[in-house]
Each structure stands twice: as structure tokens, then as C-alpha cells.
Amino acid sequence: MLVRMTLLLVIAFFGQNAGAKDFAPFTAGLKHPFVGNAAHTPGQGASPLPARALDAPKKNTVKKAWRKATRLSSNPLYLAALYYRNFLTKVDGPRCAHAPTCSHFANQAVGRFGPVGILMGLERLIRSGRSSSVRWLPEIGSGHQRRFFDPVENYIIWQPERFTGFQPVRPEQLLLLSPIATEGQSP
């Protein structure tokens, strides 16, 4: 989103004089936010390549995740958790009050953070529905599926920026504007 908006701002800054007064939705070089590539006129050359999703993982990340997953499949703790999740809990019934459930949580935590994830999982087992003594955890789902949402991100203590209570710090996104040439004319 940020890259796309920056690109739009740059395009608008350099090519603004051509269609500065024009509010038509199909102005050349700019797309309506809801139209996207559909604004491309057929027969006018090749369609622009679809933009790569900003949150798509890089190839290297996928490889690393695959290696980690193959290591996990031979990990006895992971296999025990799988056994618990697929066999024991079906007898015992769904009784975890949190989402993700404690077994899912422990799997995620160990998969992402290794031994520290074990500590996270153990702490999670004795947590109540409260986030702290001053606030409840947010509830998700409805009816029998209602659970307290408590993701792994709540326990990453080496990233204190997650616990400020404010929006994450980011550099300001400026807007480049051209000077108004002919004041008072119809826009």
C-alpha cells in the first residue's frame, strides 16, 4: 500500500500538468482506487504486470520456512503436540478458552522462537481471560466458539515497540503538491 501510494504521488507530481483539471476516472497514468487494472483499454499494448502483493513472502523466506517445517516433523515435542491435538483433545473435548488454543499457540511459539517458545507455552497454560489486571483480552467468535484472542505476538518481549499502546512509529508519508497555477478557475 505504501509503495503504491508513493508511486501514485510521484506519478501525480511529474505528470500533473496534463490532467490537472480533469476529474474523469480514467485519466491517463492514474487509476481509480476501485478500478485498478480494469481501467486498461484493450488493444493499447500489453497489460501492466500485476503488482506483487506487498505482504507476499520472499523466496528465501519460503525456503527457510520449508526447512523449519521439515525439521519440525521429526521433532518429538511437535509430534506429541500433534498427537494431543488430533487424538487426546477429541476425547477430552474443546476446553481451551483462548484463541489460538494453547496447543496451537505452543506449536507456533516453538516453531518461531525455539526454546523460548516452550516458556511462552507454559505461561499460556496458566493464563486467564485477562490480558492484565486492568483489561480483558478481546473476545472473538460467537456462541460455543467464543474465545479470548491471545496471539503469540503478545509475548514477544524483545520487541518493546509492540507494547507502547500507541500506533507503531513510522516515518511521515508526505504528499507532493504542485503550486496552484490559475487561482479561481473552475477545477
Binding site: L119, M120, L122, E123, S131, S132, R135, I157, R162, G165
Partner: peptide
């Protein structure tokens, strides 16, 4: 393991406590 998990939980709990106080404020 349980002992260490409790200590870890106390530290993360303090951070969550501060965050929740800011949210409430």
C-alpha cells in the same frame, strides 16, 4: 520449565499491563 515460564510470563505480563493501561487511558 514451569518456574522459568512463570518468570517469563511475569515480565511479559508487566509489559502487557503497561500497554493495557495506555489503551484504557
Amino acid at each position: 520449565g514451569w518456574y522459568s515460564g512463570g518468570a517469563y510470563g511475569a515480565i511479559s505480563g508487566a509489559m502487557q499491563h503497561n500497554r493495557d493501561q495506555i489503551h484504557n487511558w
